[in-house]
């Protein structure tokens, strides 16, 4: 029996039963898009982990850290931004809950608020960039700061666009319902992901280097 991996008799029995039930022809497979999204998020988080690792290695091996002449990060705007982003995740979840009770109006209201909060976050980041006392090439920490917050900002922008897509599609009667709403859930999961990344980034970029 070396190498045999199938119990023959029972398999054949199962197979013939199924054949009898299903007959032959094209049939839809279940929806795996959510699985695909999660795998994508693993990959995406590895990109961030790559950047974070670079920053942490610099922090560990550079004789002077933070680099000389680097001013402390202003924390007021990032703290407000953190609060906005964390709050927006809860607001967004309200939208999904509304949809699950077939309340598309509620979905639109809460997702609209979330998109606005995302836009405020981005505006805050633009303000931060324009008032920073250091530029992209000033020193290693400054470069890491811009690349990391910029890459994260791109993700926020993507999230806002995803939410706007959901809002656009939700105008059509019955596009999203309590039973069919992959787009809504995917946008929400992506938004939570971006949110969690921000919390890590806030600690690794702003807090421990001040």
């Amino acid at each position: 029996m070396q190498g045999s991996t199938v119990d023959n008799k029972s398999q054949i029995a199962i197979a013939s039963e199924q054949e009898a039930e299903q007959g032959h022809g094209h049939h839809e497979h279940p929806d795996f898009r959510m699985v695909g999204l999660y795998i994508f998020l693993i990959s995406d988080s590895m990109t961030f982990i790559g950047f974070f690792a670079a920053l942490l290695i610099y922090r560990a091996i550079m004789p002077v850290w933070p680099p000389e002449g680097m001013p402390e990060f202003e924390l007021l705007i990032p703290i407000i931004n953190t609060a906005i982003l964390v709050a927006s995740s809860f607001v967004m979840h309200e939208g999904q809950k509304s949809l699950k009770q077939n309340d598309v109006g509620g979905l639109q209201k809460y997702f609209g608020i979330t998109a606005a909060m995302g836009a405020v976050f981005l505006a805050g980041q633009v303000y931060e960039y324009s008032h920073a006392e250091f530029g992209l090439t000033t020193n290693l920490l400054a470069s890491c700061f811009y690349v990391l917050t910029g890459f994260h900002g791109l993700h926020v922008l993507t999230g806002v666009l995803l939410i706007l897509c959901v809002l656009w599609r939700s105008r059509e009667e019955g596009h999203y319902s309590a039973s069919s709403h992959f787009g809504v859930e995917a946008a929400e999961i992506y938004w939570h992901f971006v949110d969690v990344i921000w919390l890590v980034l806030f600690v690794l970029v702003y807090l421990i280097n001040n």
Binding site: I39, I42, S43, D44, M46, T47, F48, I49, G50, F51, A53, A54, L136, T137, L140, S143, V147, F151
Partner: peptide
């Protein structure tokens, strides 16, 4: 899935060095 994004991160940083003058 786990490895390729890290290469992407490295190449993005290398690009910044090459084009934007970071170090």
């Amino acid at each position: 899935i786990i490895g390729t994004p890290v290469l992407g991160a490295a190449l993005i940083l290398l690009s910044f060095d090459l084009i934007a003058g970071t170090a």
